[in-house]
Amino acid sequence: MTTVDMTPATNKTTPTNPRRRVYRPNTKYIPILATLTLLLVMYFTGVANYDNFGQPSVVVNLFRDNAVLLVVAVGMTFVIITGGIDLSVGAVISMTTTLTATLLHAGWPPLVVLPLVLLLGSLLGMGMGAVIHFFKVEPFIATLAGLFLARGIALFINQNSIPIRDKFWKTLSEYRIVLADGVVTKVTSVTAVVVVLLAALVLAWTRFGRNVYAVGGNADSALLMGLPVGRTKIAVYTLSGFCAALGGVLFSINSTSGWALQGQGLELDAIAACVIGGVLLTGGSGYVFGSLLGVLVYGLIQTIITFQGDLNAAWTRIIIGLLLFGFIVLQRVVTRKAR
């Protein structure tokens, strides 16, 4: 009988323990910093190449032109951080605009219509969240069903574009807020900015916000830590539904009309903006501020194409496509390093 001699082998693999405790710099800011850098480079490239690009109105108009996308992207950010996805937002916009225009046309008071459509959007989101949580349905499928449902309702109400002649809506649409001399903006942009700020606050400073991160990080652990996982999941879809409905309202204010084919593919733009803004599709990581940057990148590409004048609008999509690839690879590299 022999005792196995393991001395040389043990020496070879003396564990270098302290190395495992070395603090690594926080990698979660890298994607957002990359987006910020990209945005600044794009902006100053524009300033250097085009006349009038440096005027404040260019930046202010970015918010005006992308107010709807911004609001929707905020809701989407919450959903994606929990590890979910919401495909219904574009359809909810169309449902909201159609319903708003129809009801206003029928003479309903605007102060009834406004809360009503917001409530409907939230309820649809809540319903999808409940299905996702209670029946353990993939968010992709549940919100795809929501997409068909909302778009179907919109088409059922009216297939054509409905003009809005309501005085209140007209006022909101035409009201100009003067920020500085020669720099004016609209109600919709201000609303979008307020939504962004509120959402950022909620995500960073409230228990609900932190629960959103916990659920996205590890839902099983979150449950064992006693966090209200189900309530949080349902809440983010409700919030996303609310944001989409609010987006729809902003849309109807901007265009003073409602149309059932409005907002097609907008859910994909919102997801793209989130991803470019560093929100991890696997959940657990991301910031509202990042999604804001994502939307601004999106808007700035369009602005540059407009300034260039001779470029096809399709370039927006091509560039967004390339950027998405780039950022997804970046996220992969960063998360792999962190693990």
Partner: peptide
């Protein structure tokens, strides 16, 4: 298996 959320800070 550690039942924590590794994406959050130690304090959280």
């Amino acid at each position: 298996e550690v039942n924590l959320c590794t994406n959050l800070s130690v304090a959280e």
